[in-house]
Amino acid sequence: MSAEVKLDNHNAAPLAAHPTEKKRPIFEALKSMISSKTSLIGLILIVLLILVALFASFLAPHDPTQGDLFSRYKSPSGAHWLGTDELGRDILSRLIYGSRISIQVGLIAVGIALVIGTFLGAISGFFGKWLDMLVMRVIDILMAFPSILLAIAIVAVMGKGLTNTMIAVGIVGIPQFARIVRSSVLSVKESEYIEAARAGGARQFRVLFRHVLPNCMAPIIVQTTLSIGTAILDAAGLSFLGLGVQPPKPEWGAMLDAGRAALQTAPWVVIFPGLAILITVLGFNLLGDGLRDAFDPRTKK
């Protein structure tokens, strides 16, 4: 489900194309980002999410894994604000604890994609020739599969569970990073400044990691933020299919799946986890959009 991400390939190259002509400090970008209303909303949503995750044990009114079988599918009330689920557990508490899993999945999966994808893209773009050819073919192969299908296959091989879900979603995200970093590196490495460093006899890897990559940070940061949203969506999709996070962990996608059987009689079991996913992903997308606009000189008013 890496839908919106692909859109950014289009913008990534141009904004990395002028890295040296006007070095835009990250602070300035952040400032202009906060001044935009939408990205501020995104930032607030994410900060709230992190706070909820951090203070889950204070905020949650009930134990998220213990329930009473005699009070299954109770509708929202004073005792259970969002009702109870199929095992009589408090849905609000499960949503609150579930935020931890979502953040964890988002960060670690994207971390995997970021590290491997950036490395592959960087060496591919920087060294070119056969290495570029090889890496790009591997990327082509990965991209020949619809991402969710590839993730399903990987999980099917490695087994279900939180760790493997993160790995699968991470692997699926690698091509995006590799392509974006490669195209940025390609344009940056032609600049006079880098040519000078290479001519000055600096070691290749040193030039790449010290001088080239730092100049590609803008698209990487934007891609990272947007990817977290996508990763959370993908992981929730996997859990919804029963392949991701396993019970009794309160993962949002898995909660949705478990609640499906009662769609007619207890819709709240389905409604709230979906809203939680939607709002979280929305937060990351807003923030990512804001960052992109802030980094991109063209959209500056």
């Binding site: 489900m1 839908a3 919106e4 939408t38 949203g229 969506l233 929730a236 999709g237 919804f240 996608g253 949705l256 499906r260 769609l263 007619q264 819709p267 389905v270 409604i271 986890p273 979906g274 996913i277 939607l278 992903v281 929305l282 997308n285 807003l286 959009d289």
Partner: peptide, 22 residues
């Protein structure tokens, strides 16, 4: 559109069923 790109489509599908079918 912003909500759209952030949408868990499996949830949207269930909500549609709930609204339009159930």
């Amino acid at each position: 559109a912003l909500f759209g790109v952030s949408m868990p489509i499996f949830w949207l599908g269930l909500m549609m069923i709930w609204l339009f079918s159930v």
